[in-house]
Design a protein around this nucleic acid. Structure first.
Length: 602
RNA sequence: GCGCCUGUAGCUCAGUGGAUAGAGCGUCUGCCUCCGGAGCAGAAGGUCGGGGGUUCGAAUCCCUUCAGGCGCACCA
């Protein structure tokens, strides 16, 4: 058996990057491109063959239609000539000049065999050599993670995983809010109320801190003297006063512990090595201001240091400034955002910086990137992108809040999803022990919440509807987990193994066997895995991968409905087992790249 | 006022120049001697917000208009 990747078949992909590919679609594209050069005059020979999946055949090539005008011939006659050069693809002209292409059965089987026996399922590393910094999650010290942190954490993590899988060198950065005037207030309050016991209470620590914050805030607003004492504490903190800094460190450490617990539960990769708090940039902020002033990019206005950007105006028609230093001398977050860009470009050597942040900050990032470009901190070859996402809404269509109008904690969201999953599980027959039930509930709860978030166009708002997201039918994370568990069940039955993952069940594919239509459909979808991952990095839309996995799961259910596996015999059986094994791994890897676990039983 | 995002089946949403616009939920009809029915096969349901334009071809690109959401000086 010869696999295209081992054989080194090379096709040119987008933007002139050379890649090797197992993908049937790439092979077809190479063939059509070659046929086109035979048909077209030399100056048009590199025309795009426009190869797409088709409802009328395995693929269709629309290139003849696209170039007809330039060649001065009818698209049909070009297509007629084109099919002469494509004898292996059962090429037929259809309609105004479409060329329908059918792949030979052995080509599909070979692709299945190559992927099933490859550690990476035939997925190449087209992004190797690229350095990507992803800024996401960004909770605030002394406050609990809430629904507002969900999308950034979940989307950012999925992007990190997919970029990494395609070969990018990814740096995760969790830009936590660990600095600012609110800490003076909080520290002062703790000073004055030594009786308050908040540390070392596990999950309760954060809720204790959260309410402390609110009490302190109330006092800050009501009591001018306390406000003054708090401001003194801010100055002490900035000056590095030992006792103040010690309390601040405690606050940060306890908060980070709590964040990590949430990440562990949600299956987010972020850990203690990824914290990149605002405090880290504190010392470089005066330099940011000085350089911008010296360069004439920033100027003083109403006592603040600001920079203006063309085309950004307020309601009164006056230009809107980016506020870099406030008139009280404090720094706005524009200053830290600018400082992070310098670090990420100069030290991390980023080629691409992704900010996974709420869509409401679009204007802010537009101005920050603009200023950074003008200051020379963000070279043109470095791409900085605001990966914006919409708001999580409640079932009333308003931004998601509790009935009392308070923000919803992330932990409560997961609890709700788990409760709903548990309810569904109770209604079904299953032979699970209590601890198995618990583990299924945890996996499915995470899948429900994360998949619901990832599975729609990123920039749109979406409604957080627990009943819909834990549904076991339709395009949900739970359904995909079930489909995966189902494949595992078939593999267990066939091989007699109790476990599926890591089993070395031999993959044997007889490429001479005829393909059942359901096998063909499944094989071709399996072949598109890498393309789905590329779609994610090209569009920064993880829902492309969700859609792919759902298509894969439905193709698989059709396949096993039509094609007996365990009961089949001989080569038919082993070929079908190879399809099952490849489907199992593709679903598991795909879900993992979304940050969703894939249990073998559920 | 300006800017950004969104408008596709009853509902929730895919579809960033190709043939008859697709899924799921819900509704209706079949299929359990069959590897887990959390399934499969089929039916019904659409002026792709409206109007112009570009193109051999537009849900997709451009212009315009309507509707909704969000943002536009010191909170991050």
């Amino acid at each position: 058996m010869s696999c295209p990747r081992q054989a080194g078949a090379s096709v040119s992909a987008m933007k002139g990057i050379r890649v090797t590919s197992v993908a049937i679609k790439d092979q077809v594209e190479v063939a059509v491109r070659a046929a086109l050069t035979q048909v077209l005059p030399a100056e048009l020979a590199d025309a795009d063959p426009v190869v797409r999946r088709s409802d009328h055949a395995d693929f269709q090539a629309n290139g003849a239609l696209a170039v007809a005008k330039d060649v001065g011939r009818s698209p049909r006659s070009i297509a007629q000539d084109l099919i002469v050069g494509l004898p292996r693809y059962g090429a037929e002209v259809s309609g105004p000049g479409f060329v329908n292409l059918t792949v030979a059965d052995d080509v599909v089987w070979r692709a299945v065999a190559c992927r099933a026996t490859d550690d990476r399922l035939g997925v190449s590393s087209p992004r190797s050599g690229e350095r990507v910094v992803v800024d996401y999650s960004a909770p605030n010290v002394a406050k609990q993670m809430h629904v507002g942190h969900l999308r950034s954490s979940v989307i950012g993590d999925a992007l990190v995983r997919v970029f990494d899988h395609l070969g990018s060198d990814v740096t995760r950065q969790n830009h936590i809010g660990d600095w600012g005037t609110q800490f003076g207030m909080l520290i002062r309050y703790l000073d004055e109320h030594p009786e308050v016991d908040w540390q070392g209470q596990g999950v309760e620590t954060m809720s204790a801190l959260d309410s402390l914050y609110k009490v302190a805030r109330t006092e800050f607003e009501a009591d001018a003297a306390f406000a003054d004492r708090s401001r003194a504490r801010v100055i002490a903190l900035q000056a590095g006063d030992d006792r103040t800094v010690a309390t601040w460190r405690d606050l940060v450490a306890e908060s980070e512990k709590a964040f990590e617990a949430v990440y562990a539960r949600l299956g987010i990769l972020l850990d203690d090595g990824d914290f990149d708090g605002e405090s880290r940039y504190n010392r470089s902020l005066p330099g940011v201001v000085d350089e911008l002033l010296a360069a004439g990019i920033a100027s003083e206005s109403d006592g603040a240091v600001v920079a203006f950007t063309d085309d950004v105006n307020g309601p009164d028609g006056a230009p809107t400034p980016l506020i870099i230093r406030k008139k009280d001398g404090g720094y706005g977050y524009a200053a830290t955002d600018l400082a992070t860009i310098r670090l990420r470009v100069d030290e991390y050597r980023a080629d691409r910086i992704l900010y996974v942040v709420d869509t409401r900050q679009a204007l802010h990032f537009r101005m920050v990137f603009n200023v950074a470009r003008r200051a020379g901190w963000l070279p043109v070859k470095v791409h900085a992108e605001h990966v914006q996402f919409g708001t999580v809404l409640g079932t009333d269509g308003r931004p998601f809040k509790t009935r009392a109008g308070k923000t919803v904690r992330l932990a409560d969201l997961l609890d709700d999803a788990e409760t709903a999953v548990r309810g569904i599980l109770q209604e079904r027959e299953h032979g699970f022990t209590q601890s198995e039930v618990d583990s299924v509930v945890r996996a499915a709860g995470v899948a429900a919440v994360k998949y619901a978030d990832l599975n729609n166009t990123r920039t749109k708002d979406y409604v957080f509807d627990v009943d819909q997201m834990v549904a076991t039918t339709g395009n949900t994370g739970v359904y995909l987990q079930y489909a995966h568990a189902r494949v595992c069940s078939i593999l267990r039955r066939a091989t007699g193994d109790s476990a599926v993952a890591g089993s070395d069940a031999e993959i044997r594919v007889d490429e001479t066997l005829p393909l059942h239509p359901a096998e063909r459909a499944l094989g071709l979808i399996l072949d598109g895995f890498e393309q789905a991952l590329r779609d994610v990095t090209d569009t920064l839309e993880p829902h492309r991968l969700c859609g792919y996995l759902y298509d894969l799961a439905t193709a698989f259910t059709r396949f096993y409905d039509a094609c007996p596996v365990v009961k089949a015999e001989g080569a038919t059986r082993s070929n079908r087992l190879a399809l099952c094994a490849l489907t199992e791994r593709t679903l598991a890897v795909g879900l993992d790249l979304l940050g969703i676990p894939a249990p073998e039983r559920m």
